[in-house]
Write a protein that binds this DNA or RNA. Structure first.
Lengths: 129, 129, 129, 129
DNA sequence: GTGGTCTAGACCACA
DNA sequence: GTGGTCTAGACCACG
């Protein structure tokens, strides 16, 4: 769990931090019972103010994903894993291959993200939603 | 070009609007010379205040992507397309197939986005960047 | 809706403020659609820092009781009324009479509150809970 | 004397513990000379850290309500009873009856507490205080 | 003028 | 040493 904050995009720092924790939960990097970085460590890693980290952690607490224990730290309460780890590995390999080809074709990261967004939205309409 | 704004995520409305224009540019939905939605239309679609739309357009203008012409509207100046349209279609098809499989495995949209993010970051270190 | 904060009891200011809003909702002093005092007014009335008021309002927002609208204010979303206003008036009259007698007997406010707490806890065990 | 601590309301644990002792004193459940639960018992009942119990007892000692005797325990020094026991019983019966009616009308515990608070505040202005 | 974000720093509650 | 509360004040997003 390593935080990074980009202050150039207009996206609030605490939103970025909370999003990174959620991402780690989704990818299985964090499991229930794990302790999040201490506020102080997060501050050291991300360069923001302690209160900003606290705000991100409180937000996650509101969402029921983590739990702060006075004097002990902040701990993961729920998982966001949606997929079996083995299947996840397979999906990741295939996606990595796709990224390789996309990059060879000149597509940058933002383009890849935009394309995935379009495909996801598109599938929504094709699917049941 | 259809705007939508989510006021629940903490991300500023004007950042979301500008991001959606950039995404459309990257995917080729908007090409140089195209006119952006009028402020009035954007307001109707997104429910925000006209000033907020104006701020987004001003931001894009500052980035050199669009150009406001007094009394005529706001027009696309530059493209963000990084890939040949045919290759893009091919990449999109493969990605759509991957998404299909991911969904069958139980992965949701946020999980897919998180996985792409992880792969992109990972390839960064493996690749040339 | 008039805030007051007692800084001598160890109870966090934002907890007191949120509690007073909840109380007003329960007693019907605030109804859905009403606007809460602006942060600035609350600051003027309670003497705390604007951030403290914001924290109380955010807490209530999380509980689904109020809704903050950028640039417009904070508005009541849900009611906590549990009793018909007429019945409430009746209950209040009888309770006021009881308070009168309790005071004549030398009981102070804290004693009355403690006694109500004991009775409520007691009834729980007598009742169905 | 049975302690319970709710860690979800933002109220410091030691404030809750001290408040419960005060309430017991007011209701006559604890009388001068009685021994408070040992720190060990209080810890077992409330789940907090021994230091937290000690802090609550120290607070009560500072208020002159209890007295710590080395190696023997902590003992009640003063009473907070404001009313003759018989009158208290009568008041309690009437209040219990009122609670019964309030509950039949659909009022919950928090509503009852809020109403009492409102009545007490109201009487303040009407009465002599 | 409304609410919201962030900072720097003091102090508190708890283990 | 952990998280939590509060302050004062700057600046931003939005209507």
């Amino acid at each position: 769990m390593q935080f990074r904050v980009d202050r150039t995009g207009g996206i609030p720092a605490y939103v970025q931090l909370a999003g990174q924790v959620r991402e780690a939960l989704r990818l299985g990097w964090l499991k229930p019972g794990d302790r999040l970085p201490t506020v102080r460590d997060a501050v050291a890693a991300s360069g923001v103010n302690p209160n900003t980290v606290l705000k991100a952690y409180r937000q996650l607490e509101f969402e029921g994903l983590v739990e702060a224990r006075q004097g002990a730290g902040t701990f993961v309460k729920a998982s966001l894993r949606s997929v079996d780890p083995e299947v996840m590995t397979d999906l990741r390999d295939h996606l990595a291959h796709w990224v390789l080809r996309a990059r060879e074709a000149g597509m940058n990261d933002e383009g890849a993200r935009a394309l995935l967004g379009a495909v996801l939205d598109d599938k929504d309409t094709e699917g049941e939603r």
